[in-house]
Amino acid sequence: MSAEVSRIAPAAAARVGGFVRRIAADPMGCLGLTLVTLLLFTGVFADLLVPYDPIKIAVPERLMDPSWAHPLGTDQLGRDVLSRVIKGSQIALGVAVSAITLSFAGGVILGLLAGYGPRWLDNVLLLLFDAVYSFPSIMLALAIITLLGPSLGTVVLVVVIGSVPVYARLIRTQTLTVKTSEFVLAERSMGAGRFRIMARHILPNVIGPLLIVASMDVPVVITIEAGLSFLGLGVRPPAPSWGRILNDGYTQIRDTPWIVIGGGIPLIVTTLGFTFLGEALRDQLDPKLRKPVG
């Protein structure tokens, strides 16, 4: 089995370069890629980019309108909203990217196993997915947080446990349709092993829809994090998560709209960026949807 992995891996790695270039060639993909890169850049270098300390309180300068000194104004405690937004991107992306990546990997592996593995495994996995799925998600989240205590890691875990069954089911259903197609039979007749068929022939044909779902889930996860933070179950104040910024903004919306706008824009940008990128990814994975270059 490992021999097969090593044979497939280099080809996959070589393809990634051309892949990114082709995404950039598609206008929507290019926009998505730019927005997501911008976000990632902001997240990674947040500490260098912030003009002010995002958690430093300066009560005399509270609720100021945007100015050159504070492009997005200040909040009710006089903190610079722009700095908080920048710093918040770190938390938002950290939670979202790690939760989605883990869910994606888990969903793909379990989904393929359920769809192409032995029948009993499919039954066991389905039972498991349904068990998790039938739990009210808020109850599940609260239970996990109560058990493990509120932290960023817990938020990630809550999201992963909630999304893996959804992702796995999606992959499983697709796998079931693909596995009876003639080309899979043709591969089997040539003596291709289970792993090879799953990785090389089934996976590329089933992953498209999940890529979209997952990339559109990125902003959802960010809102979940925001929601949990609001309930005091996620990021503890004064850490500046976008959810916290929004919530701060709501309480002050009669006095100034700038906090909500400042906290909302990055959320919109993230949603658009990941959605565009997801759709471009799907198009590129499917040679039939690939637009001719030039």
Binding site: S189, M190, R200, P204, D286, K288
Partner: peptide, 26 residues
């Protein structure tokens, strides 16, 4: 399957659908 491995080297099979029997992403 292991017993069939040698046989599958010497017997090749072609399926009905000319396009559908080719893995679409390759």
């Amino acid at each position: 399957d292991s017993d069939f491995a040698t046989r599958r080297r010497h017997i090749a099979m072609m399926f009905q659908d000319p396009v559908g029997s080719l893995s679409p992403r390759l």
